[in-house]
Design a protein around this nucleic acid. Structure first.
Length: 112
DNA sequence: ACTTTGACTATAA
DNA sequence: GTTATAGCCAAAG
């Protein structure tokens, strides 16, 4: 928490809190940050996360449909899927299987 | 200060 | 059921 707690920084904080083997959606993060309709900004923050020195588990953030919408932004298109599979998440056709089961909602998990 | 953008989401057809 | 369109808001050019 710095003096500048900008939207991006908040996003990074939440994303880093996503448990291994779980996934969440852009909208859920945006809502948790207070701007439910700023889902696009979350994605944009993720895009910038590659420039950070910290490792942001951006692969755990997918769109509302469980689609790996950001796979194209990784070093290799298959890297995102590979990382998720490494955590025990089944991926098929770039979609997270059992998305509803693996979904991690910060509003429920953090805002207890 | 204005315009463009973007890893989304909800709604309409 | 799918596909197309509009709204959305914060940062970058």
């Amino acid at each position: 928490m710095t003096t500048q707690d900008s939207f991006f920084d908040k996003v990074y904080e939440v994303v880093k809190l996503i448990p291994r083997g779980r996934v969440t959606s852009f909208g859920a993060i945006a809502k948790f940050l207070g701007s439910a309709r700023s889902a696009r900004m979350v994605g944009w923050a993720m895009n910038n996360s590659h420039f950070l020195s910290e490792e942001i588990p951006a692969h755990r953030v997918v769109n509302r449909n469980g689609l790996l919408s950001g796979k194209a932004h990784f070093g290799a298109p298959s890297e995102m899927q590979r990382r998720l599979e490494a955590e025990g998440i089944q991926i098929e056709d770039s979609c997270v299987q059992q998305f509803g089961k693996l979904f991690w909602d910060p509003n429920k998990e953090l805002a207890l």
